[in-house]
């Protein structure tokens, strides 16, 4: 157990270190984040003035920050895995005492965590200066951060699964883009789903994005133990489903590699 953790932990750390060195990527991310926060802050300010609700932008901009921490921190594990499958790289790991998939997943988690933390740190300062103190109580902060990081980890796993579907699909990129769009719509990537009509939310409920993004991020402005519990249970359920799919795909892949090699 500890040896396994050490093994994959090494890949996490290596990717983390690489990510920290990638200053260009990080600055780009922060720049984009700032633009988003700035524009939507103005928007909510205007709406807030019209509605006579001055706390709107505080709530929604902090929500937006955490949403982007999950969404923008995603590396492109689907691309990496698709390339590995297409080029046959995977086959050459079959005789090494490591699971290729978990190795790639650990690397993707490492890259994700760098962006997640950097955006969290610098983004919080940006948001503080734009709208003021966050809407959550500080004692809940660790829980919120952990829940959001876990959501991000599920997100990464999901895209790893998409990468594995290279086994059946010509273009996994098309699928990844489609999923990105759906997540954007049903996950409340920019606005919380509470401002959408009910029928829309009813549809969204059936997608993983509803809990993995929206319910989790909502804890930022609406923390309660019930909400936390709901998000945690639903996220776990989706994780089980995704792990099931990944396991299935990986099993098939191994069988195919057995026959065709690199």
């Amino acid at each position: 157990m500890t040896e396994t953790l050490l093994k994959y932990g090494a890949f996490f750390r290596a990717a983390f270190k690489q990510g920290l060195l990638n200053r260009g990527m990080l600055s780009g991310l922060l720049f984009f984040l700032f633009i988003l926060l700035f524009i939507y802050n103005r928007l909510w300010e205007v709406i807030g003035i019209q509605d006579n609700n001055s706390s709107l932008n505080t709530i929604y901009i902090w929500y937006l920050l955490f949403a982007e921490m999950i969404i923008l921190s995603l590396p492109k594990p689907d691309r990496v895995l698709t390339d590995d499958i297409r080029s046959g790289t995977m086959a050459y790991y079959i005789n090494k005492p490591i699971s290729f998939f978990l190795m790639r997943y650990a690397e993707a988690l490492g890259s994700m965590t760098v962006s997640f933390l950097v955006m969290g740190g610098v983004g919080s300062l940006m948001t503080l200066s734009l709208t003021g103190v966050p809407p959550f109580e500080w004692r809940y902060f660790p829980l919120i951060i952990i829940m959001c990081w876990l959501s991000s980890a599920i997100n990464v796993l999901f895209y790893c699964g998409i990468g594995l579907s290279a086994l059946w699909l010509e273009s996994t990129r098309t699928l990844a883009v489609a999923v990105e769009r759906l997540a954007f719509i049903f996950g409340g990537a920019i606005f919380p789903l509470s401002i959408y009509p009910d029928w829309f939310v009813d549809i969204a409920r059936w997608t993983p994005f509803y809990s993995v993004y929206y319910l989790t991020i909502k804890l930022v402005y609406d923390f309660s133990w019930t909400n936390l519990f709901e998000a945690a249970v639903l996220n776990s359920l989706w994780t089980v489903l995704i792990v099931g799919f990944v396991g299935f795909a990986y099993h098939h892949l191994n069988k195919k590699v057995n026959i065709y090699g690199g």
């Binding site: 040896e3 050490l6 093994k7 090494a10 890949f11 290596a14 090494k96 005492p97």
Partner: peptide, 8 residues
Amino acid sequence: GLIGKIYG
């Protein structure tokens, strides 16, 4: 280093 970790 990573390869060393792979082989434990």
